[in-house]
Nucleic acid binder design. Structure first.
Lengths: 247, 247
DNA sequence: CGGGGCCTTGAGCATAGTCAACCGCCGTGG
DNA sequence: CCACGGCGGTTGACTATGCTCAAGGCCCCG
């Protein structure tokens, strides 16, 4: 439950998320302060990182892998409310317990900061809190786009939107060529997709099959999806085509 | 569209949202700086404050009234993604256009800051950006609770949840007595409630009628709702009863 | 008195959920 | 080595929840 604490100590300067994480705008001195209070932990796919309601002794960043934030109702209905990718931040300064379950979707490596000292650094280091504000505002925008999906889109549009979001993200990280053929590596099981989209896993499966049948997408195994015509996929999302998307 | 700009100049010290808004932790000097760049605007119910995609020359706080943040798909489907109450913040520092429509639900008074100078103040005044971070984190939590409602709750649970949220908010502002009888003043039309909850207005109407028929709530006019047994209402939300709620 | 918001109610339908069977793959233990 | 079992996924039949379309009520204001 607490993850495997590693004694490897990657230097911040060489960290793969150095320029996107909460430490992005720190200078050398500030990084040094963070070095002092960090350690790495790894989690296996499916392993719980934090249970809702639990005490959290740390905050931190996802270095590698994918984790999910989710809430569950008594009767087991589950809704994912956040998808944490490399550089995303876990935990809330000033709060000791998590209101959400945090679960490793793939193998996950976290860069954890001890909470107390991190909060102290935040008060003395505007670079950290400013970066955290930016990141939180981005997450809020993402949450709101997601609310539109949950509240108003059909099952088919939901699936297409999810694929488009993942494709866009992968192509931003690599290079962005939304004209040609795109291959999407799905980090999620059908059930996780369902929890993300507010559907059942059967409906997810059916809609993916339908998109395949109609030639919008092609499957390569269960988790690898090829999109020949990205515009055609966008047509299925129900969104405003041109530029209306949240930057 | 730009609202009526008033020349009244309420002193920040006497402002009703002084201790909850983005200026909450400012000292006297900092307030003075904000005084210099603020003005008040009013909007009539239904009036648009900002159109999605529009240039915004200001950011600001809701002083009085209720406004909504919403997104619309081409074909007219609309989803509310934020409900702005007194002290809530409008606009994002560092971004010139709004990705959302902002509409006055009731009569609204805004305290607007010119954007450029406000951003400058933010970089020099940690009190402002720290407070904004806190507020943004709260909004993110609210958005995530809302995602659970949108994605996983039934129409009936959605309505009950909305009533509970409003009741809780009103009773926090006044005094919190969740045992006895509670009266909720609905700031929203049936259509706005539908846009909030991802339902149609007919479904909203039917579910409210059903709750009334079953004695969970009582109507006093269309917009005033009396709840005799708040626990009974909570039973209908589908939530974890005890403490599971997001603080 | 007439018209327009806002709301309610009904009838029929469509979308997505439920329940269940089954497939293919992989790792494990007999 | 193979059989088994479990997991993730697919598909089908049936059902139920919420949407669509339509009519009509209430109330306020001109």
């Amino acid at each position: 439950m607490s993850g495997l604490i590693l004694d490897t100590h990657v230097h911040c300067e060489e960290c793969p998320i150095r320029h996107r994480a909460v430490c992005a705008s720190c200078d050398t001195d500030e990084l040094e302060a963070l070095e002092q209070i960090k350690n790495y932990r790894t989690y296996e796919p499916g392993q719980s990182i934090v249970w809702a309601g639990d005490e959290m002794s740390f905050v931190g960043s996802v270095v590698r892998g994918v984790a999910s934030l989710s809430q569950t109702l008594e009767d087991g209905r589950k809704q994912m409310v956040g998808l944490l990718l490399p550089s995303d931040f876990i935990g809330r300064p000033g709060r000791t317990t998590s209101p959400y379950d945090v679960v490793a979707v793939s193998e996950v490596v976290l860069c954890c900061f001890r909470r107390k000292p991190f909060e102290k650094i935040m008060t003395t280091t505007p670079h950290v809190s400013q970066r955290l504000l930016e990141m939180t505002l981005d997450e809020l925008d993402a949450a709101r786009e997601w609310m539109l999906i949950l509240g108003r889109k059909t099952a088919r549009e939901k699936i297409a939107s999810l694929l488009a979001i993942i494709a866009r993200r992968e192509s931003t990280i690599g290079m962005m060529d939304l004209k040609g053929e795109i291959t999407i590596e799905l980090p999620l099981t059908r059930e996780a997709m369902a929890d993300y989209l507010g559907l059942t896993l059967e409906t997810v499966s059916r809609q993916i099959s339908a998109l395949k049948r109609e030639g919008i997408i092609a499957l390569d195994g269960k988790r690898r999806i090829r999109v020949d015509d990205f515009q055609a996929l966008l047509m299925e999302t129900g969104d405003d085509m041109d530029g209306g998307m949240i930057a």
